[in-house]
């Protein structure tokens, strides 16, 4: 079981001396990201809730991107994806990414369409 671990994160800018040091480093990073998320969720800064990008509040984009960052580090360092062969990495990640993006895209468009039907057409939910 002589595993060798890749000990650098952030594209090699941060190198750890041992695997245990890397685990704690990733934990600190994940905690910081979570604290930022919670703080933003409580404060809800005006400039982030006012501005919209692609029909969604900027704040929600920040949340989703931070979530994906967290997901990356959990998979790569806690689930040891960083040490696996690139073939395994791609098989897992791309299968998920393609299917999930497709599903989300199609369901959200459909949901928005039904919302418009309720809002602008004769079917009303107003009692």
């Amino acid at each position: 079981m002589a595993h060798e671990h890749k000990l650098a994160i952030f594209r090699g800018t941060l190198k750890f001396k041992s695997n245990i040091a890397k685990i704690w480093g990733v934990f600190v990073f994940l905690s910081i990201v979570t604290i930022i998320e919670v703080a933003l969720g409580i404060i809800k800064p005006e400039f982030l809730t006012e501005t919209r990008f692609l029909a969604m509040k900027l704040l929600n984009w920040v949340f989703i991107i931070l979530t994906l960052v967290k997901a990356y580090y959990i998979t790569w360092d806690f689930m040891h994806m960083r040490d696996e062969k690139s073939g395994l990495r791609r098989a897992v990640v791309w299968t998920g990414v393609f299917l999930i993006c497709y599903l989300i895209l199609i369901l959200l468009i459909e949901g928005d369409y039904i919302f418009e039907v309720y809002k602008n057409n004769f079917i009303k939910f107003d009692f």
């Binding site: 299917l99 599903l103 959200l108 928005d112 039904i114 919302f115």
Partner: peptide
């Protein structure tokens, strides 16, 4: 992700 996408669908609806 199927569940969460369904949640998104209902929320957008």
């Amino acid at each position: 992700s199927g569940f969460i996408a369904a949640y998104g669908f209902s929320r957008f609806k």
